[in-house]
Design a protein around this nucleic acid. Structure first.
Lengths: 69, 69
DNA sequence: GCATAATGCAATATATATGTTACATTTGAA
DNA sequence: TTCAAATGTAACATATATATTGCATTATGC
């Protein structure tokens, strides 16, 4: 589950800890999301977007994988 | 946690059950998300978007509540 | 070099998203 | 009306997002 959280976070000069504090989760949660090892909830995605001044599409959108369904 | 899932779903003429089948969850999960009683995961949000041919911003974006943080 | 901040990551615990089953209510077509 | 499809919802079980704690590694400035 790739995303652009790390890029967006560094663009607004926040450390993982600072972003975590802003959105009310732990640093580990931010770390795992950036590493693509977590599937965050919508609310957390929105809070991250607010913290980095971007929209859901800008930070979390992924084109559909081509699985013909 | 309001969203536009119900609107988007009816626009593409899917029942809750059909949408649930398409994205691989149960009808109850779709129902609760539409009612705003669930905080879905990003992956599920993306799958719903793919199923209704819309983007995250179109279906799930919410302006930040004004809480001065 | 050394010290400190920032980050990666593992183990275990907790909260909650989702599944399963079942039944009730609503809606719309015949 | 009646019947079936669509939807709401409740109780309980399971999977997984997130917390907690702790320690290791990697920058980066002094």
């Amino acid at each position: 589950m790739e995303n652009k959280v790390k890029i967006a976070r560094t663009q607004v000069n926040l450390t993982q800890q600072q972003l975590a504090d802003k959105v009310g989760v732990t640093r580990q949660t931010i770390s795992l999301i950036e590493k693509g090892k977590y599937n965050p909830t919508l609310k957390l995605c929105l809070d991250i977007c607010y913290a980095v001044n971007k929209t859901l599409d800008e930070v979390f959108w992924l084109e559909r994988e081509n699985d013909d369904k």
